[in-house]
Amino acid sequence: MATAHSRAAARLTMSPAVILLLGWMLIPLVMTLYFSFLRYNLLMPGTEEFIGTLNYQYFLTDPAFFAALGNTLALVGGVLVLTIAGGIGLALLLDQPFWGRGIVRLLVIAPFFVMPTVSALVWKNMLMNPVNGLFAAIAKALGLQPFDFLAEAPLSSIIMIVTWQWLPFATLILLTALQSLDRERLEAAEMDGAGALDRFIHIILPHLARAMTVVTLIQTIFLLSVFAEILVTTNGGPGTATTNITYLVYAQSLLQFDVGGGSAGGIVAVVLANIVAVFLMRMIGRNLDI
């Protein structure tokens, strides 16, 4: 009985949210697009002029862009592989009955609630520092040379920090999915003589496929925009060793004040994120029964 009256009410109640989001998305995005075709530097006001696609040509042929693209892919890919593999392992572990399961669960999900700047600085200084860090102390105790993580392997170190932050998320989702698995199927397979590995590959893994896809897509959205962790540990360096696309755009626009070039980079980032978003939206949409 959706009357004309309730239809009008629906439109009325929905409009504030729609208008706000429309404004938030459309106005700045159109401005970015417009800036991206201008020569526009904050240090040289009054010299703005239309230069066509020149900003894009510069941005897309800049060696820093290729470095940043490679770093972005390595960061996203590395963290995805580590969190999903680790998450499956942890989910299988936490799904077993043992003493203090609730407490261990709390310990495992804790890193997700630590703000990015705190986790990055704690890892950088108190764990990874080659002089005073805990890892250096452990290395010395074992008679090894301390390793200067952020200088020798900067990108891997950042992957490690970000993995620590996202492992709880993957674990929680995979564990939730695992707990919906029909136990009788596992028991039946065991009776039929299927070994643990067989059961894992043929029953558990296919059951987790959906959750793995969800984890992949959602983490990708967030991982493409990793920023704070890079800002407070390496500032994108040494050189461009840890500069991802997000950081590159930030550096170009707010450190070099090149609004035009930065905007072109921003649009490139939007296009890249959209490719991922299309897949994610399809998955969630399929699940939405209205």
């Binding site: 929905m14 949210a17 729609v18 989001l21 938030w24 998305m25 106005i27 700045p28 995005l29 401005m31 970015t32 800036f35 959205i221 493409l224 925009s225 920023f227 696309i245 997000t246 755009v249 930030y250 626009s253 707010l254 609004v259 930065g262 905007s263 980079g265 921003g266 649009i267 980032a269 939007v270 890249l272 994120a273 959209n274 991922v276 978003a277 994610l280 939206m281 969630i284 949409g285 939405l288 209205i290």
Partner: peptide, 20 residues
Amino acid sequence: VLMWMLSTKMLPPVGVLIPI
């Protein structure tokens, strides 16, 4: 509308950093 709202969440922040 729901899907569209979700899509705004996927807009990378650097895409709108400068205008904001």
